[in-house]
Design a protein around this nucleic acid. Structure first.
Lengths: 205, 205, 205, 205
DNA sequence: CATGAATGAGTTTTCATTCAT
DNA sequence: TATGAATGAAAACTCATTCAT
């Protein structure tokens, strides 16, 4: 009886679109296939999303939001500083755990993002904006915090951040887009190796 | 009078296809646009490549070859062992220099590969095969060589290889697909930081 | 509680439909746009008019009625004969004044009629019927009346009527569909010129 | 063997489009019906005309050209002044004959123009431009020529032109769009009546 | 070999109309 | 009576591919 923003069918459309975009890519996906898999008429898609591209946007937009939400400083302070992370290593470990969990439950969405960010300029700029405004500043804060504590090498913060992030991202993507099989324990080991690797590269001995 | 492998027009077609596939993605590129940019008739493409997909294959195939060629052991022996690389660090440095140069001169092609490997199963399996047969074995050889010399941490070779490769790949991709601007000196610094980072992570202190 | 002929919403629908049909033509107008401009739900239109075509009919029908009403002989007698028009010229002047006023206040409707009469057979035949039954007979009466008085040239009545009507219609349409700007005085002059022109062509010297 | 600008199929497409646009109006005509009637695949239409609207343009453009061609002053001089038209009446007679012949052989095209000029702004402005640059200046020349000769009433030239043109246009349209039946003699009579009517209205007694 | 007109199946999109609420 | 989500048929348009020249 509550006034739902998204109808049942709309939800089905989104789900099918995510699946199919992830399977064959945005450009190669057809709205008729999406409609069929969602069990709706093709016209129904266009009642909710004016164009196929708007459907993509409706999928990517919220994902970007969810992606940065753990980095929104307000939230972060509580989690990281208040909960008293003792070290950069601890920070990395929690971050990777969190992001792997996120990637595990949004694998298809992330695949779409990874693909389409290369071709859709608005997604690109939206992503850059979020990065600049939320992810980078937070990393900077954290890195400088632990630099002061003498935990990190005397490299430019920017460099430390770049190395940390590219390593985490490539590891997470490798885990969920390429080496998709693997047990939970293997994953844990994987994560631990990566954290140690990063610490070896940027941490003080 | 000699049996040319690629005619003039064919070369133009390939070049246009590479540009356009890189710009908008394989699925979103149209053969008619490729023909127009190549300055040939629409039909001409299909005289050389039976289908649009075969055109993609004709582009990716040679790229894969070029990608692995420095890893083909015969070549490698000469370069790495014969020329007497003194350390894993030296090996990494040369490798990254080489791969960055490669990426710089094949940016469009690599973008196509990075995109289509996600959707084209034969590219995927071809790539995996080349990796398994050429890249991995060589890395294994090198890693074990320097492990014996005591230069590397006591991690499984597989782990060292994974960390090394994902870091190099993500660094190179970041450099050429994302952070595309930057001077030669910055690039050199970039490379050096990355090599040291990897060594910090996998090298013995 | 009284049985209203048109509800409030219905009136809004009619008004929006008139505007939009006039702006883009019946075929190019969409019921959803009409609904939006009327501030009603899409379905509401079809509650009042079974089809889009019936909506057109509901617009054109009353217009045709209003168009002929001044020619309905009963009314006309009073106005023209009883009020003692002294001449064909006077008749023309009053007629044009009246029709221009009508056109001024129904410009959009007349535009729709002018367009759709070309494509909608029922409008066409309805119009022809009204013309034959009301407009032509009255003109005939008037023309023969003034012919007897010797005011008109010795042309077939049919010819006089045709020339009179096409001139008036084209003048009125030109004024309201094409040369839409112009002051009230210009319009008066316009009208007067036209009346004199017709009289020159069909009147006795 | 000559390099035709329009292929056979293209010609068929144009013909079918003219027929169908005239029958049901541009907006209500479907490209699939046009293709069917032309005996070509629907895609073929879009190979020659990028959009349905461009097809309309390809039809109307040349018509406008043909419409004004007899008014292009260079041609006209020869015909009207050199061939020594003795009077405005003679000028009108020749003009109407010429335009009725034109209308007879392009009835469908003129119907399309008459309809679409109301909705397509570019057709409207193109038409206005041609009128201002070619039709009006020529009329002005002629009217002032015969005014000097004392053949015309002392009305503003603009007014004489307006009355002449609206009468001719409405007569021609009436003849070919509405009163489509009628013998050649009737048509001749029709024309003669109209010329005399105009002369009565604008000529000196 | 090369061309480019033609195809037809497929794509995205529109829209009048229905119907459960 | 009014709503607006849903429909599905048809619309405009795209495109890889074929083939006569």
């Amino acid at each position: 009886m509550s006034k739902e923003r998204v109808t049942d069918k709309q939800q089905k459309i989104l789900e099918s679109a995510i699946d199919i975009f992830a399977e064959k890519g945005y450009a190669a996906a057809s709205t008729s296939e999406i409609a069929k898999r969602a069990g709706v008429a093709e016209g129904t898609i266009f009642r909710h999303y004016r164009t196929k591209h708007e459907l993509l946007t409706a999928i990517i937009g919220p994902l970007l939001m969810k992606m940065v939400s753990p980095f929104v400083i307000k939230d972060f302070k509580k989690e990281v500083f208040d909960k008293d992370y003792g070290s950069y290593e601890e920070f990395l470990r929690r971050l990777m755990e969190n992001r792997m969990k996120f990637a595990r439950s949004h694998a298809a969405l992330l695949k779409i993002l990874a693909q389409e960010i290369a071709f859709q300029p608005e997604i690109q700029s939206e992503f850059k904006k979020l990065f600049k405004e939320h992810i980078y500043p937070l990393f900077l804060k954290v890195v400088e915090h632990f630099k002061e504590k003498g935990e990190l090498k005397d490299l430019p913060s920017e460099t430390i951040i770049r190395l940390t992030i590219t390593t985490i991202v490539s590891t997470v993507l490798a885990r969920f887009l390429i080496l998709t099989e693997g047990t939970a324990e293997e994953e844990q080991r994987f994560l631990e190796d990566t954290v140690r690797f990063i610490m070896g590269g940027v941490g003080r001995v």
